[in-house]
Every structure is written in C-alpha cells, then in structure tokens.
Amino acid sequence: MGKGRNRISNRIREHRFHAGGMTQAELAETVGVTRQTVIAMEQGRYSPSLEVAFRTARAFGAPLTEVFFYDEDENG
C-alpha cells in the first residue's frame, strides 16, 4: 500500500458496462461509497476493504474473484 502500483486490480468498468451501462454514481450509491472512491478503485488508486469489495461484487451479481483479482506477475 502506497508503494508503487496497487497490486489488487479489478474489472469494475467492464462489469458496469455489462450491467447495462451502470454509472459510477449508481454503483457508488449501491455500494455505499462516494463516486470518487469508485473512480479511484477503477483507476487502481484504491484497494477497497473486503466489505466494500464484497458489496461491489454483489452489486454486479458476480463472485468476488470475478471482479477483483491479485496481480501475481510482480515479485514479492
């Protein structure tokens, strides 16, 4: 956290598209965060808590691991 690129990536943008073009504001409302937090998550600038990650996945009706994943490529 805070050192270089975030290693937790996500497919939130893709899932929003598949959810009928759900807006960032709609997702934020459903998940219970601000729109800026959704933007930060999509851009990989914020790794959410487990609770928010689960709520995000539930908003898309998808399992957590389909929305969030860990970058295995990097060392460490």
Binding site: A28, G32, V33, T34, R35, T37, A40, Y46, V52
Partner: peptide
C-alpha cells in the same frame, strides 16, 4: 455533489 465520508476518506485521514 456528495458530502458524505466513506472508508477511503477515513483511511486517508488516518494516514
């Protein structure tokens, strides 16, 4: 615009 605080705001405030 939204004026509420969420977990990202709280994490940043703590750091």
């Amino acid at each position: 615009e939204d004026t509420t605080e969420d977990e990202r705001d709280r994490t940043i405030a703590l750091i």
